[in-house]
Amino acid sequence: MAANCTMATDGTARVATTALRLTVPDLSPERTAALLAVVERCTVHNTLERPPEVTFDVVREGTGP
């Protein structure tokens, strides 16, 4: 699986697009559909599609949980 990213051009430092390409042997349409179905429902894909809420917290050394 290869990831090809492009950076945003709107002045913010961020990844704008990620294209994922899976190179596979010759597959029937049924197996291709099954493969896509699994990939598109897995945790990795779901998280890329809908990024997690991110929070930041700053604690002094030795005082955090």
Partner: peptide, 17 residues
Amino acid sequence: VFQRLADLLGSVAWSVL
């Protein structure tokens, strides 16, 4: 890091194959 995520996704795909 994105490539590493893709590698994990690849593992999921290969499991189907």
